[in-house]
Amino acid sequence: MLDIVIDSRRAEIVPGFEVKRILPYQLRRMVGPFIFMDHGGPVNLPTPTATNLDVLPHPHIGLSTVSYLFSGNVTHRDSLGVEQVIKPGEVNWMTAGKGIAHSERFEDPAMLAGGELEMIQTWVALPEKDEESEPAFKNYTADQLPVFTEKGIWMRLIAGDAYGLKSNVSASSPLFYLHVVLDQGARFGLPVGHSERGVYIVRGSVEVNGVAYAAGKMIVFTKGVDPLIIAKESTTLMMLGGEHLGDRYIWWNFVSSRKERIEQAKEDWKQGRIILPPADNHEFVPLPKDNSRPAGGPPPGALS
C-alpha cells in the first residue's frame, strides 16, 4: 500500500529562517512530475527580519515553479517584466523553459509589521519536448480554482484534474495538486487515474490502515491502491502526483533530462545570458561553487 514515508528535513534558507524540505528525497526524487517541495512557515516577519528574507533574483530552467500561500503575500518579479503580488489561495505558475530569472520580496506593510507568512512551493518538471519552451508566467486567483465541499471536507484543486474536477491552471503533463482541509473524523480517499500519488501533512494528523502519521510527513502510495485517509484531528493536507516523466538531473535551481544542459545553464547564469528582472536587476544570487552539494534546492535567500 505504502511506497515510502518521507520525513521533512529542515533547510535554512537564510540565517534565522528555516523551511521544511520534502522533495527531493534521497530514496524518492519525484512524485509524478513534482521534483521539489518546500513548506515555509508559519512565521511572523517583523521588519528587520523580513528585509533579510527577500528572495533575490535567481535562475531556473526545465521546470515550472508553483507558489501557493496559506497566509501573507509575496511580490514576484521576473525577467519577462511581470510584477505580481500573490495572496493566500492564489497560484503563481511560472514556466522557466529555456531560462528565466525571478525574485520574490516581502514588501506589504502588514507583512513588515509582523504579519504571518506560510507557503508551499513546488517545482514541476517539464516533459522533454517542453524543456526548451519559451518562459511564461500566470497568476490564478482563488476564484478561478475549483472548490469542493462536503460534510467535514473542503478542498481546492490547484492544478490538474481529480475527483471529477478540472483546474484552469495550464500544466504541461497529467498531474493533480490539491489543498485539502479535513475535520476530525473525516474520511477521504486518493484521486484515481494517476500512477503516482503523495499526501503531505501540513498540520494535524491522519490515520491510514491503522497507522498514524503526523504533520511534516509525506506519505507516497503504490500504484493501484485505494487507501482510506482518516483525520485524527482538524488536518490540512497537500495532495499531489501524476505521471512519471522519466529521470531528471537537478542541480541548484536547474532541472533537465540532460546533464550537459545543466552545465550550459551554469555557464549561462555566470555569463549573464539569463537576464535579470527589469524591475529588480540591482542584485542577484551568484552561481554556487561547483563543489556545493547539488541538493536540488534554491540558493541561500531563495524559496524557489
Rank of each mutant, 00 (worst) to 15 (best):
K259N: 05
D38I: 02
E83D: 08
N168A: 13
S79N: 03
L27Y: 15
F176S: 12
V202Y: 09
L45V: 02
F148V: 08
K232N: 03
R77A: 06
R77W: 04
V74L: 13
L237Y: 13
W123M: 05
S195L: 09
V147Y: 08
R258N: 04
V192K: 14
I274W: 02
E233N: 08
G242M: 04
E267I: 04
H244R: 08
E107R: 15
V211D: 01
D130A: 01
R273Q: 02
M218W: 12
R10P: 00
K266Y: 15
G210Y: 02
I6S: 06
T75Q: 15
L182E: 10
L303G: 10
R203I: 05
E107F: 09
L45H: 07
I275N: 14
I86A: 03
A162F: 09
G81Q: 03
G193E: 01
F254M: 13
V31M: 08
P299V: 15
G72V: 03
V225A: 11
R9T: 06
E132A: 07
M239K: 10
G272S: 12
R156N: 02
E233I: 07
S103R: 05
A110H: 04
V14A: 14
E104N: 12
S133C: 10
G224P: 00
Y249D: 05
E18V: 01
M218Q: 09
E233D: 05
S195I: 00
R77D: 02
Q26H: 11
K138P: 00
K232G: 02
I120V: 09
G16K: 08
S103P: 01
W93S: 05
V211S: 06
P300A: 11
A265F: 09
H244N: 14
G81D: 04
M239I: 08
G242I: 00
R77P: 02
D290C: 08
V255D: 06
V43N: 07
V14Y: 14
Q121E: 11
S67T: 15
V124R: 03
G152L: 11
E134I: 01
G224Q: 11
V31E: 14
R261Q: 01
A214N: 14
R248Y: 10
L245D: 01
I6Y: 08
G160H: 01
G272I: 04
E104C: 01
L145I: 07
I4H: 07
L276A: 03
R21C: 06
D268F: 13
P300F: 15
D108A: 15
T49Y: 14
R261L: 06
E134D: 13
H282S: 15
H76W: 00
M238H: 12
H102I: 00
K232P: 00
G40C: 14
Q271G: 12
P88E: 11
R293L: 13
E128C: 01
N52Y: 09
E196L: 09
L237I: 06
R28Q: 13
P42R: 14
M238A: 14
